Computed example of a mutant assay.
Amino acid sequence: MTRLTTSEFLIGILAIGYFAIVQPVPAVAQSIDETASVCAGCHGDKGVPIDKTIPNIWGQNRLYLLNQLHDFKVGHRKNEQMAPIVEPLSKTDIEALATYFSKKPWPDLQQPAASDDVKAKARAVLDSLNCRGCHQEHYQGDTARPRLAGQQDEYLTKTMTDFHAGDRKTYMGMVALMKSIDEADIKALGAYLAGFKIPGHP
């Protein structure tokens, strides 16, 4: 058996360390980027969805995103486009995606502020339902509730309508609240929240 000198041994250790560093190692970030690129097909590669009925997810609250992905995964929320995308995702993938999108900047969807009469109608409804109790003062949401301010008008209206009709039952509190108002109220809320600006934020 050949005995290594001290210098040869140290050179060998350094070589191993070098190759450990330079060898490509599959990274979670790379796979998440690839998965996120699939999401961009509908949600937009710059955070602007391709359709007004599709929600913006850039900068949305992490736990809310996590909960929605989980609900799609287990079938609590039904969507033909989302179902095949979330089906192969692991719990780790879902957590990574929620983190990825929550850290993106909220895009400016360039939605106009509601007219004064729509604002007055929407504010009266929001106050009566105490929407700030969950969605916070500027409708920015919290850890588990979504940001509503600046979200897509048609998506907001569709979501509230689905709760109103009982087609979406993931949050029974929302079902009860939306059933207590009419379609005209829902339309006003969608327009107002879509054009609502959070102070100091896009």
Rank of each mutant, 00 (worst) to 15 (best):
P49I: 07
A29F: 08
D108P: 05
P199Y: 00
G133N: 10
F101P: 01
G141V: 13
Q140E: 14
Y155G: 07
D185K: 01
D33R: 12
D51I: 04
D45I: 08
V86M: 09
V175T: 08
T53E: 14
D71T: 03
Q60G: 12
M178A: 13
S128N: 14
A122Y: 00
H138Q: 11
Q136V: 07
C131R: 08
A40I: 07
V48M: 03
P202Y: 03
M160L: 15
L66I: 14
G75E: 08
S7F: 06
H201D: 15
E80C: 00
R147C: 13
A124S: 11
S180G: 07
A194D: 00
Y139G: 02
Y155I: 10
I94L: 13
C134I: 06
H43T: 13
P146A: 13
G166F: 05
D116M: 05
K119P: 00
D142Q: 12
D117K: 13
N130Q: 12
Y18T: 10
H76D: 10
I94Q: 05
C39S: 10
L177Y: 01
Q136E: 07
P107G: 10
G173A: 06
H201E: 15
I32K: 12
T53Q: 14
T92C: 01
K103Y: 05
K104Q: 15
D127C: 03
D71Q: 15
M1K: 08
A188D: 02
A15F: 12
N67C: 00
K121S: 07
V28P: 01
P88T: 09
L189H: 04
T161I: 09
H135E: 07
A188G: 01
G133I: 12
Q30M: 14
R77D: 10
P105Y: 04
L89I: 09
M178Y: 03
P84H: 10
I54Q: 02
R132S: 11
G59N: 11
R168N: 10
M174H: 02
T6N: 10
R77I: 14
A184D: 13
I57L: 05
H135W: 06
Y139F: 15
F72A: 05
A144H: 04
V22K: 05
A165Q: 12
A144Q: 04
L69M: 14
L10P: 00
H70Y: 15
H201Y: 06
Q30L: 15
A40N: 13
V48N: 03
I54L: 08
S7K: 06
I54A: 02
A149V: 12
E8W: 01
I181T: 07
Q140R: 08
N56L: 08
R147M: 15
A29K: 15
N130Y: 06
G133R: 12
Q111G: 02
P49T: 09
L156P: 00
K121V: 08
I21D: 13
C134H: 06
V125N: 07
E8S: 12
C131T: 09
I186Q: 01
M172E: 10
P107S: 11
R62E: 15
G190K: 00
I181R: 07
H70A: 14
D45Y: 06
P202F: 03
V74R: 05
H70G: 05
L10K: 11
F101N: 00
L65V: 12
P49N: 03
H135A: 12
V125E: 05
L129S: 09
A36W: 03
R145S: 11
I57W: 02
S102Y: 05
T6P: 02
